[in-house]
Amino acid sequence: MTPVATPFFFYLFAAIMLIGGILVITRRNPVHSALALIVALLAQASIYLMLYAPFVAGVQVILYAGGIMVLFLFVIMLVSIERSMKERQFNSQWVAGSIAAVALGGLFIAVYAKGEKIFPHHAMRITPDELLNTQGVATMLYGQYMFAFEIASLLLLVAIIGAVVMAKKRI
């Protein structure tokens, strides 16, 4: 079977993602911004698919597009559109923003150029076999990286309890 991960699809999804990202910050209407963000996130899921990581792509769709963005929209829908349309769209922190963007870009270029030396070899790829991707992720998370995984889940639990404490006035 011929692979679908051709350059054409990479450029297509990358372009969709970039356009979506630009629309997020240029649209005046916050709901339109959120919808553009959903488009960008879905294009990102397709790029994960092209990297032969179907599990990550599926989780991306469920969590980001289907879960988090619904909650975003839930809040934004209740905001008065007229008032937010009149607000100034960009604040004056563009110097700090562009410095951060350049730094991130430099980091990406460094990883691209010297990634093979920086990262340990086994972390480069989980399994090239698309058909065993989910099983591969599972064995790694619950085998090799069990401790890190449990620490991360503990952190999430603390965040959940913190959110409940902050939201509820009387417990």
Binding site: I62, A65, G66, G67
Partner: peptide, 8 residues
């Protein structure tokens, strides 16, 4: 995942 998109 895909059926959760219908909420949107």
């Amino acid at each position: 995942g895909v059926s959760s998109l219908s909420v949107l």
